[in-house]
Computed example of a mutant assay.
Amino acid sequence: MDEEKYPDDIRTYTGRNILRRPLFIIYILLAVSYLLIVIGFAVTLSKATTLSSQLNETYNKMKINPSGRDLHLFPCGPDNRQWEYFNGKCYYFSLETVPWQEAKTKCEEQHAKLVVIDGFPKQNFIQTRTRNERFWIGLHELQTEGEWKWLDGSNYRTGFKYWKQGEPNDYMRHDEDCAQVWINGEWNDFTCSSSCYYVCERPMPSPPPAAPKGK
């Protein structure tokens, strides 16, 4: 009965208004979505352009200095891929067994020395790569019995030590004047004339000078 109080045109107008308002909101949402898509595309394009520029710059640097690229892949030198990098130095783990003196000479021929272990980080690095085998290190008492010395002159008395329990000693009264990393990583003194693997150590090579610009 209340409906009859209003003219037909008012009822029609009110109905159309109710239908149009949701459509208006949908148009607004579509417009906002489109704007967000455009902004996202612009940001992605900008990042892609920046990344492309950086890649081109890196590629040009590699063309100018190809050896620099090799040093990233092989820090110890592309011609010495059997050397392993650790904490600023390079290490060679031999594949042959020789007496201690010969191991010392072989390292020197490669401008290196038998490894000097000066702390737990290097000890852990060495023992994880020498497990279950014996490797000579640069520690000996060849000059005076009981006076152990490192080949690089490091102070043995106050320095890092990792001997096996009961070592060093002269087993069965045999002169054991050279040190090795034992099969479990601990140090052991052994007869220098015996054949063992060995570990060489040397500084990481300096990178070659960059080529002059424009060449």
Results as ranks from 00 to 15, higher is better:
residue 129 R to D: 03
residue 169 N to Q: 05
residue 139 L to V: 09
residue 139 L to G: 08
residue 155 N to W: 09
residue 179 A to I: 14
residue 170 D to K: 07
residue 139 L to S: 04
residue 178 C to Q: 09
residue 153 G to Y: 12
residue 162 Y to E: 11
residue 133 E to W: 01
residue 153 G to D: 10
residue 167 E to I: 07
residue 134 R to G: 05
residue 147 E to G: 00
residue 175 D to P: 04
residue 176 E to N: 04
residue 138 G to V: 10
residue 129 R to M: 08
residue 174 H to A: 12
residue 177 D to Q: 11
residue 159 G to D: 09
residue 166 G to N: 02
residue 158 T to C: 10
residue 173 R to W: 04
residue 144 T to N: 06
residue 137 I to D: 03
residue 151 L to D: 14
residue 175 D to R: 15
residue 128 T to P: 13
residue 168 P to G: 10
residue 179 A to P: 11
residue 176 E to S: 03
residue 171 Y to H: 03
residue 153 G to P: 09
residue 145 E to K: 02
residue 142 L to F: 09
residue 158 T to G: 04
residue 172 M to A: 11
residue 179 A to V: 14
residue 138 G to C: 11
residue 135 F to H: 12
residue 140 H to R: 05
residue 174 H to Y: 07
residue 171 Y to D: 02
residue 172 M to C: 06
residue 131 R to A: 13
residue 147 E to D: 15
residue 144 T to F: 05
residue 140 H to D: 04
residue 169 N to F: 00
residue 134 R to K: 03
residue 139 L to H: 10
residue 152 D to W: 14
residue 147 E to T: 13
residue 168 P to A: 12
residue 150 W to L: 14
residue 165 Q to L: 00
residue 169 N to K: 09
residue 153 G to W: 08
residue 137 I to F: 05
residue 151 L to G: 11
residue 160 F to L: 08
residue 152 D to Q: 14
residue 148 W to D: 02
residue 141 E to R: 01
residue 153 G to V: 13
residue 177 D to I: 02
residue 131 R to P: 11
residue 135 F to S: 08
residue 139 L to P: 02
residue 151 L to T: 10
residue 168 P to D: 03
residue 175 D to H: 12
residue 148 W to V: 09
residue 162 Y to G: 04
residue 161 K to A: 07
residue 163 W to T: 07
residue 152 D to H: 09
residue 150 W to Y: 15
residue 136 W to G: 01
residue 139 L to K: 07
residue 175 D to Q: 12
residue 169 N to S: 10
residue 132 N to Y: 01
residue 138 G to D: 04
residue 150 W to D: 04
residue 141 E to W: 01
residue 144 T to S: 11
residue 164 K to Q: 06
residue 156 Y to I: 07
residue 128 T to W: 00
residue 145 E to C: 03
residue 171 Y to C: 04
residue 172 M to I: 07
residue 152 D to E: 13
residue 169 N to W: 00
residue 152 D to V: 14
residue 172 M to F: 06
residue 167 E to D: 06
residue 167 E to M: 08
